[in-house]
Simulated scan of single mutants.
Amino acid sequence: MLVLGIETSCDETGIALYDTEKGLQAHALYSQVKLHADYGGVVPELASRDHIRKVVPLIEEAIKEAGVTQNDIDGIAYTRGPGLIGALLVGSSVARSLGFAWNVPTVGVHHMEGHLLAPLLDDIDLEFPFVALLVSGGHSMLVKVDAIGSYELLGESVDDAAGEAFDKTAKLLDLDYPGGPRLAKLADKGNSERFTFPRPMTDRPGLQFSFSGLKTFAANTIRDLKAASESGELSEQDKADVAAAFQEAVIDTLLIKCKRALKQCNVKQLVIAGGVSANVQLRAQVTELMNKLGGKAFYPAPAFCTDNGAMIAYAGAQRLLAGQTDELSDQVLPRWPLDELAPIN
């Protein structure tokens, strides 16, 4: 089965063609980073309009790259939610229109299920059950995965997601948008031991996350440094040291929660996915942790950590193979709990 995947949940237009027998055949991605840079964050209306401009040309590009025609496509998967409602509507409208025109089934995919299954694009030796840590700009959650479509939410952020906290702290340090990757790069030059940042919600039982207070601690640290400076501004070393301490606190917090989840579920396989999973230090420390525990960590390829069409095509293909398709009454879901997904029989 050849499946066209369409991802338009936020600020990336992702298109891919996935063959259930041959694997990924093509993928195309357009990022709106430059469009939103002047605003310091994603502007929903601008994001929706840009998806409209880019989605069809990218579909044509992917079809050409794969060396197929529209007649070879057996189904279409699109991101149904969660995400920005206007952006989601672009993808769903295009997917359903093409499905009707080409007489092929369509299926709406949960954005986080796409991230969760992204490592499987590389045909890795990952067995069920496993624990997944999903970390991105909008989500931080731990999930037990018993099978594709069978998910148990173990814990999630009660306020800011990890990626969101990265971006907000980067803004406090006057780093350009998108701030998260820039903060991580700056942290490489810093001394993480200069400041002692808290590890939120690790001094109590449970698997919930909270990163809002960590961001506030960073803001207070920056304020105190400016007050103590003759110029009233941070030096480059100050910025690097704050970035290093902040990043280490986030990673330590994630590791502590992952270790608890693995013990609670009695498994030794851990998937790290979502935009923050591209963080080099996070990957290194997670790999070290899993080696100590006698387990193994799995990650998506770097190109598939951020939003992309390939993960949607793969997840959609699994549901189409199971006979799941859209109903005409189905609507996009800007808010959609992962554990409410229909299982794959």
Rank of each mutant, 00 (worst) to 15 (best):
D252N: 15
G149P: 02
A245G: 15
A165H: 11
C10N: 03
V242L: 10
D224W: 08
E127C: 08
S92A: 15
A170R: 02
K185M: 12
L262Q: 03
V68A: 06
I76V: 14
A162G: 11
L333V: 06
D50K: 07
C10A: 11
T79P: 12
G206M: 13
K144M: 08
V56R: 02
T216E: 06
T287K: 15
A77S: 12
L282C: 03
L117H: 05
L58A: 02
Q285M: 07
F211R: 06
A184V: 10
M311Q: 05
D159N: 08
L121D: 03
G108M: 06
V276A: 02
T196G: 00
V104T: 07
K144A: 15
S31R: 15
D307F: 08
G41M: 07
A118C: 02
H110W: 11
E12G: 02
L134E: 04
P57G: 09
E164L: 09
A240F: 08
L289F: 02
A284G: 00
L120H: 01
S235L: 05
L186M: 12
F195K: 05
I124Y: 01
L214K: 08
L255N: 01
A228I: 00
L116I: 04
T325N: 01
E248G: 01
L328W: 13
G155H: 13
V131F: 10
